[in-house]
Amino acid sequence: MTAVPDTASAVRLTEPVARIGFTWPKLPSKLIADAVLPFAFAASVLLLWEAVVRILGIPSYVLPAPSEFLSVLVARFDPIMMMAKQTAYATLIGFVCGVTIGLLLGGLIGSTRVLYDMVYPSLIGFHAIPSVALIPLFVIWFGVGPHISVLTATIVCFFPVTVIVATAIAASSPELDDVLRSLGARKIDVLLKVSIPRAMPQFFGSIKLAITGAFIGTIVAETVAANSGIGYVMIVATNNMDAPLAFAGLTVLAVMGITLYAVSMFIEKRLTGWAYRRQ
């Protein structure tokens, strides 16, 4: 490992010729890729939308212009936020419950051979049923109210997390296992030192599914079995042909979804950075 002469700086390319005319201001390319480009794209979609609505004169009960529903959002900010809070609570509680149960159950199933063989096929079978189809049953059993949203969000999150965690924990890597076994490791050591850390990238994959799933669960439950929350706002708005209000509700949902997604991405990067080779 001797020092290699720095050829890159030794071999100088010719000095850049002074450019003529306008030059784009130089931003760090990482900043452009991460923030400027996505933002510019979203903004131009909204602008295009605004233009199309105005030029074609589309009535606002069919498709409101962004300027219209954003101003509705501002004007009725407080009541919308009250409903949004309801949805956010239901989603978060359901998400946390579903992921926790899924993680524990998936870990248990994945680390116990007999349980895995016995339960896994049924689990896949249940997973194939769209969880929101269970909402009518929940209403029969538990009545109407925000608890139905929490329950639906929990169920929707629970399945993908359980299935994916169980599969990831059950996957074996004989070579790493040999290392641990040659040290006389117990089963619990293998689980804690190999299986669980190795399953982390898949676990976070399932969390991303769970986040979007939790919102779907909450919103669908709110549209059929609640009298509060953004889902309820949507139903009221469409019943009144108030498309701007419905779109204002959708905007709030998008912001909440992106926020939750960003938080989990942040945690994922900290915990599973090893799985992503970046130079």
Binding site: D178, V179, L180, L183, V194, P197
Partner: peptide, 28 residues
């Protein structure tokens, strides 16, 4: 437990840095 073993493949735990990989046996 008086045995230490190394294989043809290094078989390091990919989520542990060099130091923590070396520390593995004393945790077990």
């Amino acid at each position: 437990k008086i045995v230490g073993m190394a294989f043809q493949n290094p078989n390091l735990l990919p989520w542990r840095n060099t130091l923590r990989n070396v520390m593995l046996p004393v945790e077990i």
